[in-house]
């Protein structure tokens, strides 16, 4: 590739000044928070902030001894994985229906699915709370699984739909003349062909599910359903206030797998975030 020649109005100093300062603004709080995870509690909330703390593994000890961190982790993993599986089982056929068939009401159904993404959690929080209470599902990982799946279903359908639209119709027609039925075509041709879309949708749904806060706050009340996201808000030591070093540590434990997932789907990220509206 030929290198772009420098042209008018291309001020490299200004460019790197702007980009560099934003990079610092992104990274400094993260590094500082990481340092919180490795300092003793006595050096966190002080009259004067301490910028060069002593190294300490207090938070690790605290997490492993006082907090059921593995329960939180298990709840997050079970609820998130389960919700993504539900989303794929419901979402792939729906996306296929919305892309590959012409029928009355199709666009309205598609828009209805999209519009559920606009629903603020707070609007439905109270009815959902009563619903799960009546079903005896309060403080249960299964309730979290169901609600995460519902929250992300619209995203999953629309992302996968966008990738299915890219599959050439001829691929399908060839299989159909060979006598393959609709479901076999979906399973053997469409799903493999839009696998990047399915993976992107799964990763984005998983991240949103890991982060979910309001519903989890209402549904979970003990360690049998607390996820990492909501457990953080309860890391308080009574009179000692918020236990920041434990919070910092847990947030980095959750950050690392998400970073790996995002790097894996980096090329598809913008398309996933816009539910397929941007093909970047």
């Amino acid at each position: 590739m030929e290198k772009r020649r420098k042209s008018k109005g291309d001020n490299l100093v200004l460019r790197y000044l702007v980009l560099g300062s934003w990079a610092l603004f992104c990274l400094v709080p993260i590094l500082w928070f990481l340092s919180i995870g490795f300092r003793p509690r006595t050096e966190i909330i002080t009259p004067e902030p301490i910028y060069w703390p002593t190294f300490s593994l207090d938070a690790w000890r605290l997490l492993l001894a006082d907090w059921p961190i593995f329960d939180y982790l298990r709840n997050s993993v079970v609820a998130v994985t389960g919700s993504v599986v539900i989303d794929l089982i419901l979402g792939i056929p729906a996306a296929y229906s919305l892309t590959r068939y012409e029928y009355r009401g199709r666009d309205d159904i598609g828009f209805y699915i999209l519009s559920t993404r606009m629903m603020a959690p707070a609007i439905v929080a109270i009815p959902i709370f009563f619903l799960f209470r009546n079903m005896g599902l309060l403080d249960s990982v299964w309730a979290l699984m169901l609600i995460y799946a519902a929250v992300n279903l619209s995203i999953v359908v629309w992302i996968i739909r966008s990738y299915m639209l890219d599959i050439p119709k001829e691929l399908e027609d060839a299989a159909r003349t060979d006598g393959a039925g609709d479901l076999r075509i979906l399973w053997e041709i469409i799903i493999p062909a839009c696998l990047p879309g399915i993976i992107t949708a799964s990763v984005i749904a998983a991240i949103f599910a890991i982060n979910e806060f309001l519903f989890t706050l209402l549904i979970a009340s003990t360690k049998s359903a607390y996820t990492m996201s909501v457990a953080l808000a309860n890391f308080t030591g009574g009179s000692d206030g918020v236990i920041y070093n434990a919070i910092a540590l847990v947030s980095f434990l959750a950050f690392l797998p998400i970073l790996v997932l995002i790097v894996l789907i980096q090329k598809h990220l913008s398309r996933g975030l816009t539910m397929g509206a941007v093909k970047g």
């Binding site: 089982i89 419901l90 979402g91 056929p93 729906a94 296929y96 229906s97 919305l98 068939y101 159904i109 209805y112 699915i113 559920t116 629903m119 609007i123 439905v124 109270i126 009815p127 959902i128 009563f130 619903l131 609600i147 799946a149 519902a150 929250v151 279903l153 619209s154 359908v157």
Partner: peptide
């Protein structure tokens, strides 16, 4: 094909909306 997803979503929008 699309019905299961729609019914599931109605469960989280139409039902709670009506309930509210």
């Amino acid at each position: 094909l699309v019905a299961p997803a729609v019914i599931y979503l109605l469960g989280i929008t139409l039902y709670p909306g009506a309930y509210a």
